[in-house]
């Protein structure tokens, strides 16, 4: 299972990187989304996978009996997903604003803050 997840995470990184290298801002964001999901998968896999052992106690029990899943990586993952979602929403809003003010999403043509010729702020 770990092997499959590791390969999947690698594939996601590859696809994400491919998208990020294209000159379009929206594709870049989709690539970033894939990359952050690959990271989430990697954390999940690195936290050890234990099949069919929920992190629950027996009714009335005070201590875990036998082996059980570690809930912490999943808690980290949830936090990361929520944060990533917020950041992605902001980045999308920013993309819309960029599209409205430039009329395109080609990153190579976004040179307003850094004009080719050294001159003042546009």
């Amino acid at each position: 299972m770990e092997t499959i997840l590791a390969i999947l995470a690698g594939a996601l990184v590859t696809a994400g990187l491919w998208l990020m290298l294209s000159g379009n801002l929206l594709r870049f964001l989709f690539g970033l989304m894939l990359l952050s999901n690959a990271v989430n998968l990697a954390i999940f896999a690195a936290g050890r996978l234990t099949e069919g052992r929920p992190p629950l106690l027996e009714p009335g029990g005070a201590r875990p009996v036998g082996e059980l899943a570690n809930a912490l990586p999943q808690a980290l993952l949830l936090t990361a997903i929520v944060i990533g979602f917020g950041l992605f929403a902001f980045a999308l809003a920013l993309t819309i604003r960029a599209y409205r003010s430039f009329g395109h999403l080609e990153v190579d043509r976004m040179r307003l803050a850094e004009p080719e010729e050294p001159r003042g702020e546009a």
Binding site: L25, L29, L94, R97, F102, M110, L112, A113, A122
Partner: peptide
């Protein structure tokens, strides 16, 4: 230009 700067900073 602030939008332009923000795009690069954010990504």
């Amino acid at each position: 230009s602030a939008t332009d700067g923000a795009v690069k900073y954010v990504t």
